[in-house]
Design a protein around this nucleic acid. Structure first.
Length: 314
DNA sequence: CGTTGAACCTGTTTGC
DNA sequence: TGCAAACAGGTTCAAC
């Protein structure tokens, strides 16, 4: 469910709502989606949530240092000055999967179904993680392992330059849809925004990255960035159940041009939007203005080509 | 290197 | 109304 704009929306909401709060205790239900549940139960109580960030489709709850050095004579004011850099960059990593949600609520309110993790905060509220399918992920990571973990991911789609994007895409023979979805290429793009970007750029999802020309690649990058920015401004897409940290749905689903519109008319040319499986995922596109890759068309026309592109090796 | 299908788990929608 | 199949915003892994 949540892609970059939805995760950004949730992260901003949480930053507003819970940054600075201290975690008093943790309780857990099902934990099969948590890397090391015991680590969370042991490490989180007593720590403050310094801030909430987004990294691709992950949320990072940056944690204060463990204040476990028990010998403090009084429980008084803490020194924030010095060591906030070293071990302070431990974090709780949260991925919402398809159905995850992380939001604060009054402790007095009954738990929603599928509430699997509850953090009691120092102001009496609870930060609750719910996830019916448990496709999400949660992990407590200290500075070094966090760095290793984050290195697995590719570029931020909102930051990537023209040159970087062109190199990533044109150096690969995978389908462009697969490349957009590949988190080690770009971090944060999912099925909705991949399809929306390709529609806007008028590029068929099954085209191979290596076969896109420079103009197409740049049009695609701009389409992707414009769509992501717009979607963030509208607080994401709420298809069935996505809600932000304040329980509000997003608005961007009203702006979808391709995703979920099978059988409806293309807003640009009036042809009928089709759905096909590309890169293993439902893909919505306009067969008229997003031209299918050559050699993959079944128009009956055979295209003769000269052979002989010797490949370079890697 | 790249593709495909299955698996993870639950809920909702669709079709007969 | 009932029941089964298909499908869902994601990720990972084995097999080819």
């Amino acid at each position: 469910m949540p892609e970059l704009p939805e995760v950004e929306t949730v992260a901003r909401g949480l930053q507003q709502a819970i940054a600075g709060r201290r975690i008093m205790s943790v309780s857990m239900g099902k934990t099969d989606f948590i890397d090391d549940p015991a680590a969370i139960e042991q490490q989180l109580p007593g720590r403050r949530i310094e801030r909430v960030e987004r990294y691709g489709k992950f949320m990072l709850l940056r944690l204060s240092e463990a204040n476990g050095t028990a010998k403090g004579s009084d429980g008084g004011t803490k020194d924030i000055g010095s060591a906030t850099r070293e071990s302070a960059s431990a974090a709780l990593l949260v991925h919402l999967g398809m159905t995850g949600n992380l939001a604060p609520s009054l402790a007095a309110l009954p738990h929603e179904k599928h509430t699997h993790v509850t953090f009691l905060l120092d102001d009496g509220r609870e930060l609750r993680y719910t996830d019916s399918r448990r496709f999400g992920r949660m992990a407590y990571l200290e500075r070094a392992p966090l760095g290793v973990e984050l290195e697995r991911f590719g570029a931020d789609p909102l930051e990537i330059t023209s040159e970087e994007f062109a190199e990533l895409v044109r150096g690969r023979r995978a389908r462009i849809k697969a490349l957009l979805l590949d988190q080690s290429v770009l971090r944060g793009v999912g099925n909705i925004y991949a399809d929306e970007s390709l529609w806007r750029a008028q590029i068929h999802p099954a085209r191979l990255g290596a076969n896109l020309n420079l103009r197409e690649v740049e049009v695609l990058r701009r389409a992707l960035q414009a769509i992501l920015r717009n979607a963030i401004a509208l607080r994401g897409s709420s298809i069935s159940d996505f809600l932000d940290a304040e329980g509000q749905p997003g608005e961007y689903q009203r702006h979808h041009r391709a995703y979920g519109r099978e059988g409806k008319k293309c807003f640009r040319c009036g042809a009928t939007i089709r759905r096909a499986i590309v890169a293993g995922r439902s893909s919505y596109f306009c067969p008229a203005c997003q031209h299918a890759p050559r050699g993959k068309r079944r128009t009956g026309k055979r295209v003769k080509r000269m052979s002989g592109k010797s490949g370079s090796k890697g």
